[in-house]
């Protein structure tokens, strides 16, 4: 027998997230994704909403330091966790080294996939400051880019990790 409360709408729940060092409290229902909290509730629209099915990697953020797809991560599962988005890479309006390297190599065209790729690259470089070419390709396999052909992106990561790739644009 189904009890009378089973069909009632689940109540919103208060969750606490530390997003880019700032503690945020948001009320969410279980069906809300982390991506919606970041973009719609908190207003950090750098993280992009691409395929919504965990396929393109545009929504990649770091959850407790690990790259995850925020479009298939329930917000209620992230209660008490630390989130880093692409906005964390720049400080006081000045781009970070990784972002500068992307600019130097022309590693962005339409730019929609770039926030996700930057966060995947950040996770890679944190654990592996001098990644090899296959390691870079493996780390970025979950990020699709339809413009650049990837070579410039790989070059940007080689440049920022100081592996003999010179800036193109300077």
């Amino acid at each position: 027998m189904r009890d009378a409360t089973a069909k009632a709408r689940p109540a919103p729940r208060l969750i606490t997230l530390t997003i880019n060092g700032e503690v945020r409290e948001v009320m969410v229902r279980p069906r809300i994704m982390l991506l919606e909290v970041i973009r719609d509730h908190v207003g950090l629209t750098g993280t992009k909403d691409g395929c919504e099915s965990g396929t393109c990697g545009a929504c990649t953020v770091l959850l407790n330091g690990k790259p995850v797809l925020s479009c298939i991560t329930l917000a209620v599962e992230c209660d008490g966790k630390t989130v880093e988005t692409v906005e964390s890479l720049s400080e006081g309006g000045k781009l970070g080294d990784l972002q500068e390297a992307f600019l130097d190599q022309g590693a962005t065209q339409c730019g929609f996939c770039t926030p996700g790729i930057l966060m995947s690259a950040k996770a890679l470089l944190k654990n592996n400051p001098k990644p090899s070419l296959p390691e870079i390709k493996k780390a970025l396999e979950g990020n699709l880019c339809r413009c650049t052909g990837y070579n410039a992106i790989v070059d940007a990561i080689l440049q920022v990790s100081d592996q003999g790739v010179a800036p193109l644009m300077k």
């Binding site: 027998m1 009890d3 919504e52 099915s53 965990g54 797809l69 298939i72 991560t73 329930l74």
Partner: peptide, 20 residues
């Protein structure tokens, strides 16, 4: 519980399937 219930682990298969 009486309602249709699923276990959620990583959710990388279940959540996209729930979305569609």
């Amino acid at each position: 519980v009486s309602e249709e219930t699923r276990f959620l682990a990583g959710g990388t298969d279940l959540i996209p399937n729930m979305r569609i």
